[in-house]
Structure formats: C-alpha cells, structure tokens
Amino acid sequence: MSIIIYGEKERSFQELLSAAKIIKEKIGDAIYAVVIGHNISDLAEKVASLDIDGVYLFDDEQFRAFNPEIYFRALKMIIDETNANIVMLESNYKTKILGGLLASTLNLGLIVDIVEISFEDGKILTKRPVYAGKALSTQIIEGNKAVMTLKPGIFSPTEFGGKKANIIKKSIDVADVKMSLIEFTPKVVVGEIPLEDAEVVIGAGRGVKKKEDLEMIKELAKTLEGAWGVTRPLAADYGWAPEWIGISGVSIKPKLYIAIGISGQPQHTSGIRGSKIIVAINKDPDAPIFKFADYGIIGDLYQILPELVKRLKEIKGEK
C-alpha cells in the first residue's frame, strides 16, 4: 500500500513525511511525493533528498497558480498510478478543496486539520480540532483509505539527507478543463516577518480604536523583533491588515503572543493555541481572553502600551 504526500514548501514535505512514516511503519510500503508548480525543479530536488521512495514532478506554465481542477487531475493521476490508499496534504484552503475532490471521486475517507495520528486495533486514528477549536474530535478511518490534511507546524520535520530518490517528470492534458483562472494577484509582504514563523507576535483587536493607533502595536512588535497581527474585524471589516489570526485566518505558534484589546472569541483563540506563553491586555476583567492567558493585565491599553514599550526599550538598551 502506498502513501502520497503533497505540499507547497520544503517544510511541508518534511512535516508530511514524518506523519506518513507513522502510517508506513504499520501498513504502508512506499511513500511518494508529488511536486506541482512552475519552475520548481529545485523544490523537487530538495524533496528527493528526503528519505522517500520517489518524487513525481509536474513543472509547467499551467501550474503557475492554483486551479482546483488542474491540480486535482495531476494528483489523481499519481494516486491512480501508484495505487495509493492514503493521501496526505498540508492543510490549507487549496488542499481542503483538493481533498474534497479526491475523496469524493476516489471514494476515500476524508479528515482535515489533523493534529495527531496513531493506530487502534489496526485502524488509523486521528484527532482534529472542532467547534472553533474548543474541542478535539477523535476519528477512526474505516478501511485505512483516506485523504488527510495535516495542520502545519504540528508534526516535527524530517531532516534532509540520505539517498536520493528518483524524480519522475509528469504532465497532463488540460484542453477540456471547465474552469479557468483568469487572474492571480500574489500577496505582497514587504520587509515584515510572516506571522506563521514569528517567535513573538503582537495581536491587536477592536480595543485599538483607530488605524493610526496600530503604530503602537507595530512599535511594540519592532521592539521585541516580532510580527504583528490582528483579529478578523480589523482585517476583514476595516481593512487595516491583509490577513488575520484565527480559525478562518492564520494559525500562529510563537514563543510569546501578546493579545491587546482582544476579547478572546473561540474563532480567534483557536489560532493561537500553539503559542508557548500568552499575555492579554484588556480593560474588561471578564474578557474571555484572560482564561486563555498565562499572564494578563486588566487596564486601558492606551495607558499600558506606551509604558510597556518604554520599559522594554530600556531593557533592550541595557544589553
């Protein structure tokens, strides 16, 4: 029984492989990676140097940006060819769609956002967060046939090195594709640390009253050499930032998260669960965020922030 893994970045393949090995050890015999994109032979080379049985590479202009129908066809081709029963994808918007298409057309089980994999009585047992991240659901895959999407940042990455696997070039015909991508505008992030990778994240919520006041948040982030992010309303409703932290946005896992003027609704807190230490600053003593915090300060952020930044700058200067 073979296992397919598919991600977009080096790191995704490293994490997926660790998870795939848990399954291979019990019931699998080969793990193949699929790499899809345009001008990405470097990524394929890198993935081939993981401890893996083969890499299938789709490298063509038609894969320049995501089109569900085209990417689905590519993956399906490899699943058919390798007779794979287990397909593991890095969890994100695109792979939820690919997972849905693959599971329904190949009649496979489907579990998304997996954070734990083990075996029980010879069956694959997985855990995933549900109810806006308030609960954990344990699910058993019948027949050990499934598409699984894995939350990034959970499974420890496999190291590169070791024997080099074969890279097999593939292509598909897209003449009859029904759906077209007519425009793609990549997100530009300039000179800021991406939220997902930051060791310190400062989060701003609706307690921050004006866009200009975000400068205080950015100043604190800069002082701590971290990134800054916001809750959904600040991004989606006010347009103050391109993305937000939470279940429908980015999940973060810094060493330190400081939530400022954030009430702590489950849709937000589900995205910060991976943080080592959480600090909350809120003027409402009953704000749910305090239940979620290691340290909290009840008070007005407009009074606390300037003081906090001042003290931290002094300390950084001391060093």
């Binding site: 659901s137 344990t138 895959i141 290691d294 909290g296 300060i297 008070g299």
Partner: peptide
C-alpha cells in the same frame, strides 16, 4: 468512511496570572 469516536473539549491549561492595572498608578509596577 470515517467514524467519530469522541469529541472532548480542550482543557485550557494556562497559568491565568492576572494583574489589575485599572488604577493607572499601578501600571509601572505591574
């Protein structure tokens, strides 16, 4: 094809050490 065997709420295991700075004169110390 997938059976749910249980759904359990997360236990929040945070330290919950909270300081009250609603009186601004306490901010520095806190």
């Amino acid at each position: 094809l997938v059976k749910i065997s249980e759904v359990k709420a997360y236990e929040e295991k945070r330290k919950n050490i909270i300081f009250d700075a609603s009186d601004p004169s306490k901010i520095g110390e806190i």
